[in-house]
Design a binder for these strands. Structure first.
Length: 233
DNA sequence: CGCCAGGCAACAC
DNA sequence: GTGTTGCATGGC
């Protein structure tokens, strides 16, 4: 099984995932009305771009349900905005994002991210696209968060490697899960068409598969790709 | 109760 | 460059 075949099979099994979820736009497009991908693309407006980026920080090491709570609390406080976040007292911001866990660390990360966004040049309804290294220079933004922001916020395909990717790629025999982030990213990108839709959707499908079947303790018994997965042989 | 969840920076070696 | 640790909530 190669990279493209795994993508096609997961798409066939789970259907388009419609990532990235935007709590502020629940009910508008995407699967379950939580996303924007099918028939669309990344957000074209500054609010959506920032919401995806802030969500990428808030979900670090945390279940999305908790990150989403924090995003909603920012929305309810009228603070899901770079200017507002940058102006909040650290402990006030921390109290708002508390449900996401690591709240003191994440409050600081959100301020760093907000200052960065305040320095971006508006372009059309969005922003001029930042470089990957610009994102990686930010305190609190590592490779996965940078690639999530590039792909899902700015529409620049940069394959996202996370624990699910490592696990699924490792078990299906596509890669060594202990390899470095950059090696895994380039391996995935080499194995796939250079397409925003495929990068965005494939990673979302990997997360779905990783949550439902290919868990830390896998459920190979009901796994639809068991027959072509080296792990279960 | 313990384990887990869409990481990252700081530090040790 | 690789390995370890602190950061913390909410669901199961």
């Amino acid at each position: 099984m190669d990279w493209t075949e795994l993508y096609r099979r997961l798409l066939d099994i789970y259907g388009p995932r419609g990532w990235w979820p935007l709590p502020s736009r629940a009910g508008v497009g995407g699967r379950d009305g939580r996303g924007y991908l099918p028939g669309g693309g990344p957000p074209s407006d500054r609010e959506g771009i920032f919401e995806v980026s802030a969500g990428a920080v808030l979900t670090q090491g945390t279940a999305w349900s908790n990150a989403e709570r924090a995003l909603r609390r920012l929305l309810d406080a009228g603070a899901l905005d770079p200017g507002r976040i940058a102006g909040l007292r650290p402990d006030t911001l921390a109290s708002i994002v508390r449900p996401a866990g690591y709240y003191n660390v994440k409050a600081r990360k959100l301020v760093e991210l907000s200052r960065f966004f305040l320095g971006l040049r508006p372009a059309g309804s969005g922003y001029s696209t930042p470089g990957r290294s610009d994102l990686l220079d930010l305190w609190g933004v590592g490779p996965e968060t940078a690639d999530s922001i590039l792909t899902y916020a700015f529409g620049v395909p940069s394959f996202v490697i996370d624990e699910y990717s490592r696990r699924v790629f490792g078990r299906t025999g596509l890669a060594d899960p202990r390899d470095s982030y950059e090696n895994l990213r380039s391996a995935a990108e080499r194995g796939l068409p250079d397409s925003w839709e495929i990068y965005a959707e494939f990673h979302a499908l990997i997360v779905e598969h990783g949550k439902t079947r290919c868990r830390k303790r896998p459920d190979c018994g009901t796994c639809p790709i068991r027959k072509t997965c080296v792990y279960s042989l």
